[in-house]
């Protein structure tokens, strides 16, 4: 391999963005759908971990990692529907239930996942998109997992669908004004439950990326708050699926800065470099928010905006 030196840093950021962003992308797209319908699910961290565990376990048991991805989605769907159904009960607070679900999902995944920490499950394949480059580093950075591409496709499709399809309009209406939706004859609770279920499905798939591709094994420290952060990114992305994608890329890339700088010899202050994603996100939020208007694109029924 040729010497890269400082060029290693941008390549690592690119590679990091491609490798690390996918779980953030899936979770935030899932949460985006949920929140568009007027409900918030803070429990996606629990669903992410549950997805990571069940995906790995299924891949190990069936020998097919794609079945693992589906299984992870199904586990997420179940937990998402659970959240949706509980929150349909009158007086129940969706934020609180989400926090409860975070604990429940994580606990269940740790409990059931113990037998799968040791075995090695088949992982997802990578697609080499860097073949045009002679540099092995660039080739490695552009080893892309199909889920990443599916995620991008999903982001594009969702932002189109929210604007241009009947289904998208209904979801947005349910999220902006349940009275209007009800007047039009739509069943608001059912719609929201469905959206929460779909959100859970996507978060579960995001979890399977962690255990089946990158870093690519199941352990209890696997997520360490990525699901919670991804939920927060939705607010940052102003409920726009494409922005969710950019935010996920930004977050993944910024996370790679610390290790990359150290590998070229900048080793002091690594805690501060490692905090880069948070500082950058906060900085952008402060710069782009305004005290005078509420967040553009915010669904009117969302409990955190009232």
């Amino acid at each position: 391999m040729t010497e890269l030196g400082w060029w290693g840093v941008p390549i690592a950021v690119l590679g990091g963005a491609v490798r690390v962003s996918t779980p953030f992308l899936f979770v935030s797209l899932g949460e985006c759908i949920t929140e568009k319908s007027g409900r918030i699910n803070l429990g996606l961290e629990g669903i992410l971990v549950m997805g990571a565990m069940s995906g790995y376990a299924l891949s190990y048991l069936t020998g097919n990692p794609w079945l693992g991805v589906l299984g992870a989605g199904a586990a997420g769907l179940v937990l998402g529907l659970l959240h949706g159904l509980v929150c349909n009960l009158p007086r129940v607070n969706d934020i609180a239930v989400g926090i409860g679900l975070m604990l429940f999902g994580t606990g269940l995944a740790f409990f059931l996942g113990k037998p799968y920490v040791q075995p090695k499950a088949p992982t997802l394949p990578a697609m080499p998109l860097g073949g045009w480059s002679a540099s092995p580093q660039v080739q490695a950075a552009l080893e892309v997992n199909p889920l990443f591409l599916i995620g991008i496709g999903l982001a594009v499709a969702l932002s189109w669908a929210f604007r241009n399809t009947r289904w998208g309009l209904i979801v947005r209406m349910v999220g902006d004004s349940s009275d209007a939706a009800r007047a039009m004859g739509y069943a608001v609770p059912r719609m929201r439950t469905l959206c929460t279920g779909v959100g859970g499905f996507l978060a579960g798939v995001g979890g399977s990326f962690l255990s089946l591709y990158y870093p690519g094994s199941w352990s209890e420290g696997l997520s360490s708050g990525q699901g919670l952060m991804a939920v927060a990114l939705v607010i940052f992305a102003r409920w726009n699926p494409m922005h969710c994608f950019y935010a996920a890329l930004l977050f993944g890339g910024a996370g790679a800065v610390g290790p990359a700088l150290q590998s070229v010899g900048i080793t002091s202050g690594y805690y501060l470099f490692n905090a880069a994603p948070y500082v950058v996100t906060l900085g952008i939020m402060i710069a782009t928010c305004s005290p005078r208007r509420t967040l553009a694109g915010a669904p009117g029924e969302l409990s955190i905006n009232r």
Binding site: G46, L82, V86, V97, I99, G100, L101, L103, F104, G105, T106, G107, L108, F110, F111
Partner: peptide
């Protein structure tokens, strides 16, 4: 954690 999760839900 499972017990806590069930209880809180």
């Amino acid at each position: 954690l499972v017990l806590q999760g069930i209880a809180f839900m």
